[in-house]
Amino acid sequence: MGHPVLNVQSVTMAFGGLRAVDDVSFDVKPGEIVGLIGPNGAGKTTLFNVISGYLKPTQGRIFFHGDDITGKPPYDLAKIGIGRTFQIVKPFAGLSVLENVMVAVLLKHPSKKNAEANAHAVLEFTGLLDKAHMPASSLTLPGRKRLEIAKALALEPSLLLLDEVMAGLNPTEVKETTGLIQQVRDRGVTVLLIEHNMRVIMSLSHRVIVLNYGEKIAEGSPKEVAENPLVIKAYLGEEMAV
């Protein structure tokens, strides 16, 4: 132990002249739920893509449990324990819900029998068991969001990156998903989540990191961040902050 689960060191991701992520550093400690917030276009998803290996950072390094993982491909990161969901969900549409989860379970349980049993357990945990044999394409948006979480969990990750899993959900579903994330954390999984729903961020996160125009402008407890004038300015504009 001793090492943070995730250690991001001055990461920059530039696309041509645009610095989508600009010199961002932070830690995520074991067992934490950390919220990543910021206005649209602040670079949150880009940062996720860098951490999960879909983009190679222009500068900076990323450490996972103390090991340098900068530039490693997504499939290697999944193997060592980084699970992620996508804001724009990526189900295997032609496969059944059960098969979708099995693809992920196979990583840790290569035998088909074990994989099926484990996939059932994951579906039960995420409340999708009754839809196990439906094609993933027939799920509604809340169902697809939930399938994203189920697939990421099925990897048995030590770090879970959740990209706007609440978007498009009704208040009841938001409450259910919030409960689910809390349970995941209680099982010992560290969580980093991007979220626009402030109520969710305030109730779930131990710490909040705020991005704006690719830069980290604030970090602290939900309360500290909410009172930070820079954050208010970023969200509400110049005049309101004064």
Partner: peptide, 9 residues
């Protein structure tokens, strides 16, 4: 889904 599959290892 190739991107989705990569996230599954």
């Amino acid at each position: 889904n190739e991107d989705g599959a990569m996230a599954m290892g």
